[in-house]
Design a protein around this nucleic acid. Structure first.
Lengths: 226, 226
DNA sequence: ATTTCAATTATTTTCGATAATTTTCATTGC
DNA sequence: GCAATGAAAATTATCGAAAATAATTGAAAT
């Protein structure tokens, strides 16, 4: 693995997790220190991330972590619904038993992790399994372009979910695992309309919960800053 | 403008127009000669293009122009239909008179160029105006993510249309300008269902014509090679 | 003829240095 | 006080060279 690839993965990881905060300038000297490499591989990685909209660049003024906004969250989720409901229908049409068992196993792993409490309740494992479950649903859509855009939008929306998960700021009255279970069942039953409807609802509820949590934390942040 | 930006635009231009053929290895020494710059800005540009799937990369073995395939053409067009029909409906919902006049003027410019014959019949101008017209239709969708994916897929499909246009290999019995006109009219009439139906048909016809032209040229190429 | 291996050549990857540009900050003039 | 100015510092962008790796060649062995 080349240093450019290492830099790309490390930067992407740190941006998505918020360890490099939105809007923060990415100075090459700092990054070279942080990741232990020279400018060339860092600049190459930053150019990739710029093309993926995780980083912004201004000529001769360097790179920054891409900003976050409620507008972008709504935009990304709306487009996820358009793309993923179609991809889910295609997967249901084309998927074989390998696809179906991928859904079963990823759902099981997700449920196990969601049920864990105490020191085993690791949000990074939960997040990885959540991603794997949603990817498994679409895996048989037979469209590389769709899967690429799924990954792009998943990363974009993950940046909003992670700070909310870390703050444990989600409402308690919602049974997300039941939603995942119903969605998986509809997909396994090859009920395309039901499944895509459940997927849309799942995302619409999530975006509302996230937006509410973010708005209230913005309010409290501004109140404490004044 | 930095050299990285110049390299990015020049490489993107040359790849989309097929001046750098699909699959061709992109050797840094050659590119440095071709574009008159050192390795650093070229590698940064190639990394951007790799993130956009116009270039492939293999560790320690360099970059290549991304390959073309009929499967990818069908995949890209199918996803364009999903994304753009939705974007067109949103534009029709949100678009104001600035949006409408953008459609009118870009359609007019496209029709003028399509009607030109002889030395004025420049396929690059035609292509630029075709792009501008399709962008104008979606311009009011109010979704940056949608517009980004539109540009990505437009570039991806342009790579298939250009060699067919250059070979003048499209069937003559089709009135593409009439299709554009009807589409624009439906959009201006705020008839979302009609407009998105016409857009789908327009793309499905185009992909069939392109696929037929490419298949027949593949057949003739293989026959002459044997 | 084919395979193996070492030496050579070609190519990519990375670094360190330099040039170009922006940012900072103290100073001057109003 | 405050804007304008200009030097100094910081930072990015680019180059050229060095290091690392891959590909090629040709001789030797089978």
């Amino acid at each position: 693995m080349t240093l450019t690839e290492k830099a790309y993965e490390a930067l992407r990881h740190d941006i998505i997790r918020g360890e490099l905060a939105a809007g923060r300038p990415l100075r090459l000297a700092d990054l070279g220190e942080r990741y232990g490499m020279g400018f060339s591989p860092l600049r190459e990685a930053l150019n990739r991330l710029q093309a993926e909209r995780l980083v912004t660049v201004e000529s001769l003024r360097g790179f920054r972590v891409a900003p976050l906004s409620l507008d972008e969250l709504h935009d990304a989720v709306s487009l996820r619904i358009v793309i993923e409901t179609e991809a889910l229908k295609a997967s249901i049409r084309h998927g074989d038993d390998v696809w179906a068992s991928g859904i079963v196993s990823s759902l099981y792993a997700l449920n196990v992790q969601a049920a864990r409490t105490g020191p085993e309740a690791d949000i990074w494992t939960l997040e990885a399994r959540h991603h794997a479950f949603h990817r498994a649903l679409l895996a048989a859509c037979n469209s590389p372009w769709t899967l690429e855009f799924f990954e792009r939008l998943y990363a974009a929306t993950e940046r909003y979910r992670i700070p909310v998960l870390l703050a444990a700021a989600l409402p308690v009255g919602r049974d997300v695992q039941a939603e995942h279970g119903a969605l998986a069942q509809a997909a396994l039953d090859r009920n395309a309309e039901e499944a895509s409807g459940l997927l849309s609802q799942h995302y619409l509820r999530t975006v509302e919960d996230l937006a509410a949590a973010i708005r209230s934390s913005e309010v409290s942040r501004r109140a404490s800053a004044s």
